[in-house]
């Protein structure tokens, strides 16, 4: 749920990175954090376990500049990917304006991708959203690995709705900003349509 403040002339939106465990959601945020001018971003907060697995969420506030005199701010969140943290995932989806679904390209993670995507749809539905009317993009991460699912097959399975999709290697930053740019654009277009 966006927050438009006419007093401080700000538009605030919430973007959630969703996907199976170890697919690279936190890595996406870390790369954005590293490559963004400190003036345009806040601190990155990671509520993680001692082994650096996301426990509740990661959070990164980004300030992208002005549109028609309004500052645009995006709050990026990740969900914990591991299956047993479902209650936390539901909480983080509350008030979401746009979603980046990060898929793990490795063949052996295909089932996990599908399960996570179905879980996302179910959790969105529980919050009153429908996947067909919420802005989302898909990122096929870890394309640099040897044992990856061919892109055509990936699209056929995960992207039946034809959402914007991107190949990425989040660890080195390939495709990270392209993905972010696409979701920001979709969220602003959705806001423009009127809520």
């Amino acid at each position: 749920m966006s927050f438009i403040n006419y007093s401080s002339r700000e538009i605030n939106c919430k973007i959630v990175y969703y996907g199976p465990g170890l697919c690279g959601k936190t890595t996406n945020l870390s790369f954005i954090f590293k490559k963004t001018n400190p003036e345009h971003r806040g601190k990155m907060i990671s509520l993680a376990t001692e082994t650096e697995r996301t426990l509740f969420f990661d959070f990164l506030p980004l300030s992208l500049g002005d549109i028609k005199g309004f500052k645009t701010r995006f709050h990026l969140y990740t969900v914990p990917g591991q299956i047993f943290y479902d209650a936390s995932r539901k909480l983080i989806l509350k008030g979401v304006d746009g979603i980046v679904f990060v898929a793990d390209s490795q063949i052996e993670r295909m089932d996990a991708n599908i399960e996570s995507f179905e879980n996302m749809k179910a959790n969105l539905k529980e919050q009153g959203y429908d996947i067909s009317n919420i802005p989302y993009v898909i990122q096929y991460n870890k394309r640099d690995l040897a044992n990856v699912v061919p892109l055509a097959e990936f699209k056929k399975v995960l992207n039946v709705n034809g959402a914007p999709d991107f190949e990425a290697v989040a660890a080195t930053g390939v495709g990270v900003f392209e993905t972010l740019k696409a979701i920001v654009k979709l969220v602003l277009i959705e806001l423009k349509k009127g809520t």
Partner: peptide
């Protein structure tokens, strides 16, 4: 969408 956007105006912000 389950809830509408939160919008803040000058008058209410001051209050």
């Amino acid at each position: 969408m389950p809830t509408s956007s939160l919008v803040m105006f000058e008058e209410e912000f001051k209050q």
